[in-house]
Design a protein around this nucleic acid. Sequence first.
DNA 1: GGCCTTGTTGCGCAAGTGTATAAATAGCCC
DNA 2: GGGCTATTTATACACTTGCGCAACAAGGCC
Lengths: 223, 223
Amino acid sequence: MPDAADPAPMNARRKFRREGEGRRRQDLIEATLDSVAEYGLQGATLRTIALRAGVTAGLIRHYFPSKEELLQEAYTALVGRMTEQAKAALVMDDASPRQRLAAFVTANLSAPIIDARVFSLWATFLGRARADPALARAHREGYLGFRNEVEAVVAGVLAAEQRKPDASELRHHAIAINAIMDGLWIEGCLAGEMFSLGELSAIGIKAVEAELGLAPLKHDPEK
Amino acid sequence: MPDAADPAPMNARRKFRREGEGRRRQDLIEATLDSVAEYGLQGATLRTIALRAGVTAGLIRHYFPSKEELLQEAYTALVGRMTEQAKAALVMDDASPRQRLAAFVTANLSAPIIDARVFSLWATFLGRARADPALARAHREGYLGFRNEVEAVVAGVLAAEQRKPDASELRHHAIAINAIMDGLWIEGCLAGEMFSLGELSAIGIKAVEAELGLAPLKHDPEK
DNA sequence: GGCCTTGTTGCGCAAGTGTATAAATAGCCC
DNA sequence: GGGCTATTTATACACTTGCGCAACAAGGCC
């Protein structure tokens, strides 16, 4: 039976469910971030992304006019989530400024902010910032926003210590502390198993307090 | 005259010069780094790289068995050059330990180490470290090597101050100082125009000295 | 100067890419 | 329950990619 030309409905069309636009877009963005983290920008093809999202490639075009726009939105979502998590550690109103600072440092040097997948995404996208002004701008805004948060926390700590830093001094402290946290974040993401639990936080807190010239408070809480 | 089947030698074959293997490989690696920095890993195609190196794409296969090996060697070359430059600032034997430390910090926060192109490459490759064990290992070795340099310099400074830190304390200092320099390096590469000349070095030196608990030496060199 | 090695070119190929578009069907409205 | 429409699938297409291969010529050697 060579060419049976079987008209039987053996080739059934794939079943599918309709989803709301918000849900689909969110799923596609998440699948995009997953694919980029795993395969890089080159390996994150539309077909790979669609497969991970559980749809077919053509559908992506229905929600995003081009692949570039999808990547753009995915990066925006990533940056937004990162800054949101970072700031979340600051909503402890009943603590002393110094305690807030320590908690801020610790939060940014622990899960879920210390995360190899997020670091891969951060590095992958940032590698293209030099050639992509939109990426560069998105990063710049996120960076300055974060640094301003740091500066505000530092100002609170110094005020509680009766110190009156001028704007330049405050800016330098914020830049340095931001650098400390960035550097430790990278080390934690890339080689987390090299550090014992809480070690990075301890190093970070000590370094930040040294930068600010805070006397190390030991077992004696009374000065 | 439709199909003149012109056998005339109008299609001249491209002229070329033979180069030594070392020179060609080096040129190809440089062209690869340029392409990756400009177009990303996705845009750095064999044809793009060959064009920049002034050869045809096929030749690359003659020196590198696959594109992946070419990228691998390019990254190795990049890391090697970076660490080499970083260590170059340490070859000043006639300086005090503290001066050596300051010079080390300054060198790592100035050109040519502060460089947007190098940062793009660093980030691009590191973004794939999670999925590529070879990249991860290359980075790990470079990082540990650099941190050991830092630790050695720190040990020298503290010894000159009559201080006897234990291994754990020394390690923590090295991790923190490494983080400070990494963080400031990133900020300088990504947004160099936001900082005045020498500002990053000044911030870095102050932060490092604060981390080590060194008294800020002002106009009075005598203690 | 002619030969011989091999660095180098030029072209082809199969696989995979993003995009375009027509056909189908899921699910809401009445 | 029967249409209507927008979501989703499926397929086609032009193009690029990394790689393979055979012809070619540059330049050292005798």
